[in-house]
Design a protein around this nucleic acid. Structure first.
Length: 877
RNA sequence: GGGCGUUUAGCUCAGUUGGGAGAGCGCCUCCCUUACAAGGAGGAGGUCGGGGGUUCGAGACCCUCAACGCCCACCA
């Protein structure tokens, strides 16, 4: 059959009308006899790369462009199926928009700065950054961690970070390419890269100039292991074992004792007051008097505050500086003194607070230098001995605040930090940011509730400085006066045109390097920005705000922010904050929120549970299209169970697409796609249903509902394969004459062309492969189907439906009789409504042919479909 | 304590103007039919979480309760 090809396609025939133009294109593979998925992924991703299929054309105008604020994955972790899920979602949208005619701005970023990378480098090489060490140009990183952790200088450490992330990024890109993400790889950025640093520093300086960023000395949540401040957004509560300890405070007038329960007796020395609710009758007499602390004999006032809960413990609490965030509130609102005893290393300071009695100071000496945990044991023993512990501690479990990456409970330590206002202490700004949230189109809509409840619960501004190394430094220095004092309140700012700067190696304007860290000189701000402070300007980084005004004008504000719901309070919120300040606008029109991947038992996947699925294994086992199929069925915002079964179905679908494409192209070889030859009612009926499908999926994808789109397309596709193709197969082969054959052939090709394009955003490789068998160029650059051209005059969707119903009834009879589907049928009687019988009449010969019905299909009018089938008798042959 | 989501066949889930209870997997039966046996055809299986209401009619709309999951919260 294949050798007829050149006869049917004389030179000069329009290859676009369905001819076998592959003869004119050396790269076109012939249609394989047995289509297979093997090697498709690699072959086509190489072609896309070579042809720059997904290159962004920056000459297009803003209205023609669809720009995507891609989430930069943290490269120090490993990519897991959760990434595959959400990045596939975004890619389907990108490919749809591209086919709809938008020029898609779809860069990839790598989030490589920050603590996760530092931690990975520490573990990978067995090193630790000591900023006091000098750069060692001859330093050679160990191949693997030694027994002792090797302290290395900051520049050496940063070099190792850069080296490791470069390797990680290569592996990530490889996976993304295999998955078939249609990003323009020439636009990739990294969050530690020069452009990101320049953008972050510029945005910070502008925030500072407008008063949106500021420095403050204040109690902050502090991770004692990482020795850095931590922002509210990075907190998580963990149920932790603790105990109520009833401590015996002494009334100052000697009239007796006062029992106060606490879970943190080790902080007793830091007690600055005790507090009860202003309406609590039990303590009215005590307000404005003083009590003496047990063990330490310090005199502290009894104060009233609404946050004291009469129901908790004895209804009266001790206020320490600082045991928890409520202490901070009390301290601030009641203007209490500060007696901090926990240091940045999580150990009790060596010096006792001055207010302790002499005996108290001795008691304190026993806990100085200990960790809070060790100190608690000692203090409890001391209290027991002094008789000031009432009864035994009562064990409880209670939520305690942890840094999300940390291992020990957070302490509260006073330190000087940089902040950006976020509405945490400014009702007007809070309202403005809530309003911004309503400007964004949330997908799904209910995800906005998370954004709003986060803003409503903010307790302070956004702490952006971290006492770490592999991050964007603050472009700030401080003068040192003649006496060697660092003048913190007079920062020296980097000029904008000098950005990015590293104040630890660059000197501020007007100074030379020899004045660093000396009297009458300068010193660098030692901190780096938190990773979210950089991530919050990903739209600005990606669109070239700081360096490419032309690109920026064409791509910002962006169209789409895709991300998962867990970082609404961090990435999404902070991005809106920055854009609100800088541009007085939202950064993007749509926020498409993905869910998480659960293991097959619907448990959250995590490394510690050992149920993490490595994506590359599945890509290699079933092919990228199969994995993408699974991902595309995960609905927006909804958690999706990892399901190998679904991937297998995706693989089956992919193979089916190749096979049916092969069949359609083979049976219709030489036919065109001229709608005017589609004269047969069944063919026109099928195309009418296809038109409805195009409308449905287009509307769904316009609303980012990729799951609905693929589900509908798949449903139609199977009915197309099982029913339509079977019904018209004989006619397409020519059993009913040339005109009838041409109608079927053209309809088959038109339907295939449309179905391949409807599947293209999802099953990117097989659609490209099948497309290449008969069309020039990438399917991913052709236009999305239009329903209008499928709607032919007088087409009745019912014809296809009824014909398929009757064919199904015939099959059912054969199945129930345990006969082959090839069994001839002697007689068929269809009873149905007049309307449906009329529809059937239009496809009568196709039904007879597909059902192997020897006689005519008899009909009689009835209330509903009832088919009587008489099979040919069994023969002994 | 406040909020959001989910609850449909054994499993994973569709069901978008209220009128047929559905798909795939799994299970059972059958079939090598000239695109496809790493296929194909067919079957069994559900008082749509409970209760109330609106309606000629509710899986879908309203009220209420429950279970599960998640987010937020000043958790001594």
């Amino acid at each position: 059959m294949r050798e007829k090809t050149d006869l049917r396609n004389p030179p000069g025939a329009d290859p676009r009308s369905g001819g076998n133009w592959r003869f004119y294109n050396a790269r076109m593979p012939p249609i394989p006899d047995r289509p297979s998925l093997e090697g498709l992924d690699e072959r086509w991703s190489a072609v896309w790369d070579a042809d720059e299929t997904f290159r962004f054309d920056r000459s297009r105008t803003r209205a023609e462009i669809f720009s995507i604020d891609t989430p930069p994955p943290t490269v120090s972790g490993s990519l897991h199926v959760g990434h595959v899920l959400s990045y596939t979602h975004t890619d389907t949208v990108a490919r749809f928009q591209r086919m709809r005619g938008r020029e898609v701005f779809y860069p990839m970023g790598w989030d490589d700065n920050g603590l996760p990378t530092e931690r990975r480098v520490q573990n990978y090489y067995g090193v630790r950054c000591d900023p006091h060490l000098q750069f060692d140009p001859d330093f050679v990183a160990p191949d693997k961690p030694g027994k002792e952790v090797v302290p290395i200088s900051r520049p050496n450490f940063l070099e190792l970070c850069a080296r490791l992330v470069a390797e990680d990024e290569k592996a990530f890109e490889k996976l993304w390419r295999r998955l078939g993400l249609s990003v323009d790889w020439s636009m990739t950025y990294t969050t530690i890269g020069r452009e990101a640093q320049r953008t972050s520093q510029l945005a910070f300086l502008k925030n500072l100039a407008r008063g949106e960023a500021y420095q403050a000395d204040a109690p902050t949540l502090w991770d004692v292991d990482f020795r850095t401040a931590v922002a509210q957004a990075e907190l998580e509560d963990r149920e932790t074992a603790g105990a109520y300890h009833a401590l015996r405070f002494h009334k100052a007038d000697g009239s007796g004792d006062l029992l106060i329960e606490t879970t943190r007796p080790e902080l007793l020395a830091a007690c600055v007051a005790v507090v009860a609710h202003p309406d609590d009758d039990r303590y009215q007499a005590l307000f404005d008097t003083e009590v003496t602390t047990p063990l330490y004999g310090a005199r502290v006032p009894v104060v009233a505050h609404r946050l004291a809960d009469p129901e908790k413990g004895t209804g009266i609490a001790m206020i320490c500086t600082f045991g928890d965030t409520t202490d901070v509130t009390w301290w601030r609102e009641l203007q209490l003194p500060t007696r901090a005893i926990v240091g940045a290393d999580g150990r009790l300071k060596s010096d006792a607070p001055e207010t302790l009695s002499a005996a108290g100071a001795e008691a304190y000496a026993e806990i100085a230098g200990k960790t809070v945990k060790q100190a608690q044991k000692v203090v409890v023993e001391q209290l027991r001995t002094s008789g000031e512990l009432d009864g035994d501690p009562r064990p409880i479990t209670h939520p305690v605040k942890f840094y999300e990456r940390g291992d020990r409970p957070l302490e509260i330590v006073t330190s000087r930090q940089w902040y950006i206002r976020n509405g945490g202490r400014d009702p007007e700004l809070r309202a403005a940011l809530l309003a911004r949230g309503r400007e964004v189109n949330w997908i799904p809509a209910y995800m906005r509730a998370r954004y709003e409840s986060w803003i409503e619960g903010l307790t302070g501004d956004w702490l952006i400085s971290r006492q770490r190394f592999f991050g964007v430094p603050f472009p700030v220095w401080y003068r040192i006066d003649a006496d060697g004092n660092v003048l913190r309140d007079e920062p020296l700012l980097a000029p904008e045109d000098a950005l990015p700067v590293d104040p630890s190696t660059d000197a501020p304007p007007g100074y030379t390097e020899d004045r660093r860290d000396r009297a009458n000189g300068f010193t660098a701000d030692p901190d780096v920005m938190d990773t979210w402070a950089t991530s919050s300007v990903t739209p600005e980084i990606a669109t070239g705000w700081a360096s490419d005004p032309d690109l920026f004008a064409r791509t910002f504000p962006m169209d789409l922010r895709p991300q998962a719901y867990d970082i609404i309070r961090t990435w999404l919120f902070s991005t809106i904050v920055r854009s609100h300040f800088e541009f007085d606008t939202v950064p993007w029109a749509h926020a498409a929120i993905s869910g998480f991947v659960l293991d097959p038992d619907r448990k959250k996947m995590s490394k510690s549970k050992g149920n993490v699925v490595v994506p590359m294994e599945w890509l290699e086992k079933y092919g990228a299209d199969a994995v993408r199929y699974w991902a595309a069925n995960g609905r927006p915002g909804t958690d999706t169970a990892f399901d190998e079964g679904q991937i297998k179905i995706g693989r089956k679908l992919a193979i089916k697409i190749l096979n049916v494409s092969r069949f359609v192209l083979t049976v219709s070889e030489g036919a065109g796609e001229d709608r005017s030859v589609v004269t047969h009612a069944l063919d026109r009926s099928m195309l009418a249903e296809l038109a409805a499908l195009v409308d449905d999926t287009t509307a769904a994808l316009d609303q980012f509902d990729y799951a609905r789109a693929i589900e509908r397309t798949e449903r139609f596709f199977w009915s197309f394969c099982d029913d339509y193709v079977e019904l018209v197969k004989g006619r397409a082969y020519g059993v009913a004459g040339d005109e009838a054959a041409r109608s079927a052939q053209a309809a088959l090709r038109i339907a295939l062309s449309h179905l391949l394009r409807l599947f293209a955003p999802f099953l990117v490789y097989v659609t490209e492969e099948a497309w290449s068998w008969w069309r020039e160029g990438s399917i991913h650059r052709v236009s999305w189907p239009e329903a209008g051209e499928l709607r032919l005059d007088g087409a009745d969707p019912l014809v296809f439906t009824v014909a398929a119903d009757v064919l199904g009834a015939v099959r059912k009879e054969k199945s129930e009789q345990k006969r082959s589907l090839a069994t001839p049928v002697d007689r068929v009687v269809v009873r149905d409504t007049e309307h449906r019988l009329a529809a059937l009449d239009a496809a009568r010969s196709d039904v007879r042919d597909a059902g192997k019905i020897a006689g005519d299909v008899e009909t009689e009018i009835g209330p509903e479909l009832l088919v009587k089938v008489e099979l040919a008798p069994v023969t002994d042959a």
